[in-house]
Amino acid sequence: MKKILVNVVHPNIEQSIVNKRLVNGIKDIKNITINNLYEKYPDFKIDVKEEQKLLLEHDIILFQFPMYWFSSPSLLKEWFDKVLEPGFAHAGASMLKDKSFAVAVSCGGSKEVFSPTGKDKKRVEEFLYPFEITAKYVKMNYRKAYITYDTETVLSEETLNEYTHDYITYVKNL
């Protein structure tokens, strides 16, 4: 059974509706490790060796976060800058080669907003390209993203349940 590391990157997961629900949906799956980066590193002082150890112990690395300014919360950028250092992930070493890299992102806008004819003129997948190219750069296999929409609106219990069910299925199929 493949081991999955879920790096949750939400500055306030307890106040989250969608991301908290998604984490709760997968937390009891046997082969999953939940790694809450904002909880561990509120000061942004990342333990690089600990994070690298976690990466090496898992087959699939999933980053779960809300979309902030068409990207991720800033701690994730800091995490990439520090953890994927030369000699570990690239520039002479490819310690993550052939592992899977996946993204689960929650978006405040609707699917229509994130379309060529919508307000943002691009699909969410296009905004996620830096993650895809990062995966390729460190020789990881980029997997199709899991995306939730309309998270800035009051979502019905039915929609939240559907998102959670779909996320559990997505994670199990990684």
Rank of each mutant, 00 (worst) to 15 (best):
D81V: 04
G92N: 00
K111T: 00
Y68A: 12
D98I: 00
S106L: 07
V171G: 03
I46A: 13
T33I: 06
K27Y: 02
Y142L: 07
E50M: 11
L5A: 09
F44L: 09
K172M: 11
L56D: 11
I168S: 01
F65A: 09
E162S: 13
P66F: 05
L155P: 06
I46M: 11
K139H: 14
E158V: 14
K53I: 00
N141K: 15
Y41M: 01
E85M: 04
L62E: 02
D98G: 01
K97H: 06
V6R: 00
M95H: 08
V105I: 15
K49Q: 14
W79C: 00
H58K: 02
T164A: 12
E157W: 04
N35C: 11
P66A: 13
D150V: 06
V6T: 04
E162V: 03
V23S: 11
E126T: 07
Y41I: 01
F63Y: 14
V124T: 12
E51Q: 10
D81T: 00
D150K: 08
L160Y: 03
L62K: 01
L84C: 08
M140T: 12
Y163E: 06
I26D: 01
L96S: 00
Y41V: 04
I34E: 08
L155Y: 03
T151K: 02
V9R: 00
E39S: 12
T159Y: 00
D81L: 02
E50W: 06
E78V: 11
S74V: 05
K97E: 15
N141L: 11
T153Q: 14
E78L: 03
G25N: 05
P130L: 06
P11D: 06
P11Y: 06
L96V: 03
S156L: 07
V124N: 07
E158R: 04
P116Y: 10
T134P: 05
L54F: 07
E50N: 13
P73C: 09
Y146L: 04
